[in-house]
């Protein structure tokens, strides 16, 4: 049984070089990719999420840890696919039309990725039509919409409506987040949920896919 503390520590401290070395070393020692993911990378990122919630970590620390995580994930990904290990679910994330703020969206993507979700990032200023198209192409289970401004959050409603009009609304769960957004707003526009921060977004994503399967 390999001790994954050191690998977890690399993720927590955001040490990219060591994260690469240790992930490779674990593989070389014959550990399954799935085990390295579940016992090294994911628990490491869980600690990062906790530190962020407690105020120990701030945005830059999260981003540094995310880079280390991504390096580890990059090494494991082909092996996970080859051994037919499925991600928890696929999440399409993006910032809505008219809004170019991506920090919040990126933090949510990081925490989801660190919890075993596969992330498809649509980027910023994404039109409702683009979201519909990308959801189809990727087969995403969940759509995560972000908006920072009170003036752009209305594009969330447009996006939900676009899925309705397309007839594919029931194929995807939609969760929303961002400074001006509330649970009430999520309900009002017909989204499936609102997450006030990245940690809750992970919990919500788990619940949403749990409910649909």
């Amino acid at each position: 049984m390999t001790n994954y503390n050191e690998l977890q520590e690399c993720i927590i401290k955001g040490n990219r070089i060591k994260a690469r070395e240790l992930t490779q070393e674990c593989l070389d020692n014959g550990n399954p990719a799935k085990e390295i993911l579940d016992e090294g990378l994911i628990p490491g990122m869980a600690v990062v999420g906790k530190k962020f919630q407690d105020g120990e970590y701030f945005i830059p620390e999260m981003l540094v840890s995310a880079r280390a995580l991504n390096i580890g994930l990059g090494i494991l990904k082909p092996l996970l696919e080859a051994s037919d290990v499925k991600p928890v679910a696929k999440v399409l994330v993006g910032t809505v039309k008219g809004d170019i703020h991506d920090i919040g969206k990126n933090l949510v993507a990081i925490m989801l990725r660190g919890s075993g979700f596969e992330i498809i990032d649509a980027g910023v200023d994404v039109s409702p039509e683009k979201f519909v198209q990308m959801a189809k192409e990727s087969g995403a289970d969940i759509l995560g919409l972000s908006a920072l401004l009170t003036t752009t959050m209305t594009a969330m409603k447009d996006t939900v409506d676009a899925f309705q009009a397309d007839g594919s609304r029931d194929k995807i769960k939609i969760m929303i987040g961002g400074a001006p957004v509330t649970t009430d707003y999520a309900e009002k526009i017909g989204a499936d949920g609102y997450a006030p921060n990245a940690a809750i977004a992970v919990e919500m994503a788990k619940t949403l896919v749990g409910g649909s399967r």
Partner: peptide, 13 residues
């Protein structure tokens, strides 16, 4: 609206 702004913002935290 500049992508450079957000990068610079994060670096300046």
């Amino acid at each position: 609206d500049e992508p450079a702004f957000q990068d610079s913002f994060v670096e300046s935290l």
